[in-house]
Design a binder for these strands. Sequence first.
DNA 1: CACGGCAAGAAAAACGTTTAACTGGGCACC
DNA 2: GGTGCCCAGTTAAACGTTTTTCTTGCCGTG
Lengths: 348, 348
Amino acid sequence: MFVGVYSGSTRCKGDRLGADRERQMATIKDVAAKVGVSVATVSNALNDKPNVGSTVRRKVLRAATELGYRPHRAAQAMRKGRTRAIGLVLPDLTNPFFPQLAQTVENKARKLGLLVCLIDSQDSAEGEADGLTLLAQHGVDGIIWCPVGPRIPQPIHTLGRPVVLVDRPRPGFAVVHSNNLMGGRLLAEYALRQGHRRVGLLSGPRSVASAQQRRNGFLTAHPQRLEIAWEVRVGFDGLLSPEARAVLLERRGATLIVAGNDLIAINALRLLTQQNVRVPDDVSIVGFDDISWARIVSPRLTTIAQPLAAIGTRAVQLLQERMSGTAIASRATVFDVTLVERESVKSI
Amino acid sequence: MFVGVYSGSTRCKGDRLGADRERQMATIKDVAAKVGVSVATVSNALNDKPNVGSTVRRKVLRAATELGYRPHRAAQAMRKGRTRAIGLVLPDLTNPFFPQLAQTVENKARKLGLLVCLIDSQDSAEGEADGLTLLAQHGVDGIIWCPVGPRIPQPIHTLGRPVVLVDRPRPGFAVVHSNNLMGGRLLAEYALRQGHRRVGLLSGPRSVASAQQRRNGFLTAHPQRLEIAWEVRVGFDGLLSPEARAVLLERRGATLIVAGNDLIAINALRLLTQQNVRVPDDVSIVGFDDISWARIVSPRLTTIAQPLAAIGTRAVQLLQERMSGTAIASRATVFDVTLVERESVKSI
DNA sequence: CACGGCAAGAAAAACGTTTAACTGGGCACC
DNA sequence: GGTGCCCAGTTAAACGTTTTTCTTGCCGTG
């Protein structure tokens, strides 16, 4: 691949220049000197400690803003043992489920003055462990984590910092996720309302708890009225195994296909469309997650929406509680999900 | 929205417990004590300084790994003035263009031992400035930045750290982006090859340089052979103004619609499909970017692919160069783009 | 054999904060 | 009028590194 390089002057404004060095970050010493008071007093004044007079406090505050003083976080971290940064460890940003989560987490965290350090493990346990080690080394105050595998990697144990899981529970950890069981039930009821009796299942992996719950919710809602024509397990990345493709095209009397998530549903949809099977006229499909893609495929996908923003917000809140040590309210938060009806299901 | 809370024991493994405290992170002092040598020597040994004997060096290295010692980054930052963290400032993670960039940036940075601190400004100049301030306060060593507006916010100037822009150049800053002019030209040539003569333009905003270059590349490639039926400016988020919708449905003889990016193209595609205009039979569409959505709409979108992974990799590399101060090779890197032919264009 | 130089390591200072311990003065109380 | 206390500060220590300076012993050399 050709790479053009415009050279010319290679120095840029964005570089560290000697000239730029003039503008050193103001330190607490500078503030102290400006006011004519000790550094301890400045620190106390800025941190609302009681032992400083009101006039001096005012002067300090003014001087601080005048100098544009901001405490050096590394120094604070060193002293206090807290970084005011949190880790966000996700399996795969290209799965559209996660960017939205990341966005709300970052925004809520920033509102609390917390910096978000991102790790994308690319679905690899090794990458995840590396990332966690890096976070530990930086001394983040807590971690929001969507684990890739069932095993808890070593760095988590030596971390000594609170961890909040999202979407995927693990025994002994705080978690916030949505009610997958309920989602499954909603889909079952909807299927019945639309007159479907015989369904095919493209379930997610047996090892992923949420996949299992979606499936069980669906199966146990009306076991006597819904008939399972077939069930195939596929990965949450949506890639269809040859077996899945074969069963899917065969259909075996199923009028509705229930996919473990939207990625699976969309891939199934594409395969069917390619083979000139019309959706929803020949067969209906439902997904799960309501990722952004669900809105842009055609037909648009009927699916279960997770309140992603709420999940992210709650995760930050939970982590914050645990970081500050105050009011550890709860261990698990489960959000209701909602059915989003679009055009991929036909009433029969 | 209902929120279920499973209380039970509210203490979790992930919390800071007294019992967990036993497992404090080993410090350089511990290593020194274990070997029976001074901390300075340990530091020197670990940093490959010359003034330490080979036997002692070996012992130190062994002790360090045995204790699982990792230097406390806050302390290092304090002393060295470098954090080994970089900022990644993006306008909007829900635009599928950016997660992929973020993923490669994070992975390449991690390979270099750099932690990536994420800011999602949600397309707001204020959020961006806040994020940059936060990064400055944390003392990140450099920033990879896709600016939201034309104005350079204050924090950048007082930062004193290298900055590398992605996708959107600004005067005086290092940048890595793809060759939008070339992309425009490729599209023009492709349009001609497919027999189109009269085209409609859904260009991106005049204020965004890349939008302008795509447009100009298209217009100047074969000015005498392509006729512009109409041109409407829309935002890069793809939302169509009433004017755009009207013109689009009217078409005025255009057989091909050239959109400023994929988001615009997809929205146009949806509008047309809704109104029973068949794509590509009645009218063809091309996009720009090759975001993941381009592959899942139907018809799949013919578009220009940017080498996102290469851009991310190069940005990290460029930043690394500038951070270490060695070999500031270049100011701008421009990547070639490629035409991805799918089904949204019909030959006429 | 005295002395310079060098190698290997120790001691101490420094980075920017916070905080515990201390100081001095004013004032209330007995 | 002494005693003790509180207020409003100051001094100094501490966090975990790196780096500069200092020490010690040894070797080679004149």
